[in-house]
Structure formats: C-alpha cells, structure tokens
Amino acid sequence: MIEVANLSKRFGKTQAVRDLSFSVEPGTVTGFLGPNGAGKSTTLRSVLGLVHPDAGGATVLGVPYRELDRPVHRVGAVLEASEVHPGRSGRNHLRVLAAAAGLPRSRVEEVLALVELSAAAKRRVKGYSLGMRQRLGLATALLGDPEVLVLDEPANGLDPAGVRWLRDLLRSLAAEDRTILVSSHVLAEVAQTVDRVVIIHRGTLVQQASIAEVLAGAQGATRVRSPEASRLRGLLTAAGATVTDVGKGTLAVDRAPEKIGEIAAANGIVLHELTIERATLEEVFLELTGGETTQ
C-alpha cells in the first residue's frame, strides 16, 4: 500500500511535482500514467526515499520508505533499466544486491529463471538488449519476494511478445495479492494489465479512478449513415447537436443513438447505420492530459 500526500518537488526552475496526492490499494495493479516529463519518475523516486520532497511526502506499507526494515523483502522497485554497471554480468549484478539484502545465492538463480534470463546471466550487461535490461530490472525488483512492486516504464524496449509476457507476469503477481504500481506514458500499454489508474500531468493529479470509470467518462460520438445525410444534418444541428461530416453520407454526432433515431423517424429519414463510437484509450488519455503526449 502506497500513500502520497501533498507531494511537491522543484528542480531549479522546474516544478516537477505540485501538491500531488493519491493512494495505491493493496492487491491491485495501478497504472501511473502521464506524458513524458509529467513528474512520474520524480514522484516514484520520492516514494522510494531517493529524492527529498520540498513539501509533503509518501509512505509505503505505512511508513516512509527509508524507515522500512529490510526494504528489499517488502518493496521491489526498478526505476531505470540502465542502472547497472555495464562491465558486470547480469548474475553478478543480482548477487551484489542479494548479498546486501542477506539473500542466498539460490534466490538469484530463481529470479533469473523467472524472468527467463538464465541463459544470458553470465554475459556482461554491456551486451544486453534493452529488453534484456528490462528483464534484469524486473529480476532485481523480485529478488526479495516483496509484497509491493514499483516499476517505472517496465514495458519500454520490450517487443510485443515481451509486453505480453510482462502483462501475464504482472497479472500473476497481482493474483498473489501484491500491490503493484507501474508507470507508463502509453495508456494502451498497461490498459489490459491495470485495475486502476492515476493520471498526472505537469506534476499535478488529473484523475484517479478505475480503468472502467476512465473509459466510461470518455466522450463517445455516435456514427450515423444515411442517404439523406445533409437533410439529417440540418435537423440535428437545429436540435442543438454538434455534427461533423465524415464523408460518404456518414455523420459523427455528439448525441445518443436513441435521440438521433427519434429525429430520423419523426422526419421519415432512412438510416443505414447507427453505432456508438467508443473513444479509444489513447484519445481519452490525450484528452485528459491536454494532447501533449510525445508518442
């Protein structure tokens, strides 16, 4: 369980995070979303005691991270896949951290197998692909078999098969009642994995809700196709709707299909198609964050 309360942090002239509050419930996968530069990494680093907030703060499992006893056994985190000495092998990277946490060597082999990196374990990290570094990062986070996982952009650099593998892994970890906070700047990447989302933009909270609520709240349009599109358009506009002609006799209307059907029937207009058009996840995301995503 993670609580962030009134967190603020400024780096020089940049206000990275401003009065941010949210909470992550146990046993859920929560997506921490925002465009690049929204303050996600600063927030996560503050949660993990790496960055000193100017105001406010965060607790993990009820206490500030730096006061946790044996933190590796409670919280697993990976912030950047590149935070490994390039000249050290993947296995030795894990052995170093296992030694510091008092974990046996056998645990290193277990997590290597879990992230399917055993074959490359004795190679130096210098030669790893970004996807392999991501797997090594995950292995690092899982070393202490922690109940809380904090992962910053873990899907970056993974191929589609890797993204799917990551999704299955996170779902199975969540099924074991762990708390998982996973950040991303691409909503679609985590949409099938997360239960809840926390969306931030320019260091402030935009929305904290379940993924279903986010989708329901999205403004959907209705698509209507008719041989008398221009007459229908006039009638709908007269009724106060906003209508966009999308060509070939098809209109996009910001009214429910029932309303459009009634108007068409009352005026004897034939309809060939009447469908609800759901906003895609990315559209919702762009709308919430002011259309400033970079990807």
Partner: peptide, 11 residues
Amino acid sequence: GTVTPTFLATP
C-alpha cells in the same frame, strides 16, 4: 546509476 539499487536496498 547503480547508486539507485544500492540505496533502495540500504536506505
């Protein structure tokens, strides 16, 4: 940047 995992393991 290995200071990150180092300080995470030993705050």
